[in-house]
């Protein structure tokens, strides 16, 4: 019972770990450059959750000073993750544009086929 309770109490961490490993696995296992980028995005998304979920306090409100509320959630994780999302989008955009250029130059976005053609 204790194990199940612990599992339920910290289920958010299990979701995070699942996404993290799934994302990383896609990056490693797939040869298609677009799929790799999708995996990378999933991997980064897990980190967003890692920051956001501990920032939530049950019953807590946004940190606006008001006599009716006494319990506030920490806003800092959200701010940090907004920054991280921007960084993630920039990375994804750059990765996709590189993939477009690679497709123009090599006529494929499969890593195996490129490595067969070119000596790197």
């Amino acid at each position: 019972m204790i194990i199940i309770n612990q599992f339920i109490a910290s289920y958010n961490y299990f979701i995070i770990i699942f996404l993290m490993i799934a994302g990383l696995y896609i990056v490693v296992a797939r040869g298609n450059m677009i799929k790799k980028l999708i995996g990378l995005s999933v991997f980064q998304t897990s980190v967003y959750l890692l920051y956001i979920s501990p920032g939530k306090i049950i019953g807590g409100t946004a940190p606006i000073i008001n006599d009716n509320y006494t319990l506030y959630s920490n806003p800092l994780p959200h701010v940090l993750i907004l920054t991280a999302i921007v960084v993630g989008i920039a990375t994804l955009a750059l990765g996709l544009s590189l993939t477009i250029r690679i497709n123009e130059e090599f006529n494929t976005i499969e890593e195996d086929e490129i490595f067969n053609k070119e000596e790197l």
Binding site: Y51, I114, L120
Partner: peptide, 27 residues
């Protein structure tokens, strides 16, 4: 033109590295 592949590989590796770093800071 292989510079594109080099850049892409670095992008994947570098982003994984940076994300690992953020996970560490998160903890």
């Amino acid at each position: 033109k292989r510079s594109l592949i080099a850049s892409y590989q670095y992008l994947i590796m570098g982003t994984i590295g940076a994300t690992f770093y953020v996970i560490g800071i998160g903890l």
